[in-house]
Amino acid sequence: MKIDTKAKWGIVLGLGPALLIYIGFAIVPIIISFYYSFMKWDGFSPMQYVGLDNFKELFKDQLFWHSLKNNVYVILASVIGQLSLALLFALLLNRKLKGAKFFRTIGFMPVVLSSVVVSLTWSLIYNSEDGLLNELLRAVGLQSWTQNWLGNEHLAMISVCVTIIWQFIGLYMIIFLAALQNIPREILEAAEIDGATEWSKTWKIILPMMKDTITAALVLAISGSLKTFDQIYVMTSGGPNHATDVSALYMYNKTFQSLQFGYGSAISVFIFIFGLVLILVLNKLIGKSAV
């Protein structure tokens, strides 16, 4: 829309309230946290300025890099597993289908479930002694596939990722469902008259029209994955032996268990910058493909 003086005032008034609260109660605490990252502080005794020492230590901290690597797995799982399944179910459930409302509601349920229940039930599924998954494998004769899903250091992260994928499919499903309503029926109807198959309709019309929302979902999935905490905290506490440690959990332990507030802040600064870089790269990639 074109801007005139009246509109300028509108912009200021319209953006003002949101910006004010956002800066005051999200950005300011973030900046204070950045400030702590240059300090040595146990929370009880006075702070001590140490310059870049926390960051120097961070770069040498193998456990941190290990936890960040696990975050990358969560990102990949979310982007590949979660978004594609969510898109699939959104497309399926957007059509006139008997019981669609029921499936939409059920599909959303995991999102609202307490992480305590998620942890307890998935532990019962993954349990190596009498867990449902192993029982199921035995029942269909795949005895040799049974595993100690959460107790094996090589499998634990994959198992945790599956649970995370499962829990948030519903979230992206409703985001995509909302976006699908934005596609005018006439366009789809016109395509049908032209004899387009469902497949080509989806690829050539629906997905391109959802591009903005898919990009937003990608950004949400990446940022959400970098902050993953609850599920892992309750499912494995980062174990066994750091196998499922992620950086937010590592930061929490450093801050509140080891009382290294400064170092903890340095970790969150790093997570923040890492996330920004990822999103910038993503924007570049998507920007190019759109040209």
């Binding site: 956002y22 109660f25 999200a26 950005i27 300011v28 605490p29 973030i30 204070i32 946290s33 702590y36 929370g43 950004v219 949400l220 940022s223 959400g224 970098l226 902050k227 905490f229 950086s247 937010a248 930061m251 929490y252 801050t255 509140f256 507030f261 903890g264 802040s265 970790i267 969150s268 997570i271 923040f272 996330g275 920004l276 999103i279």
Partner: peptide
């Protein structure tokens, strides 16, 4: 977007 990237526990003490 910045606000999406901050682990909540990092803002606890400042908040």
């Amino acid at each position: 977007i910045f606000g999406l990237l901050v682990p909540i526990h990092a803002t606890l003490v400042p908040m």
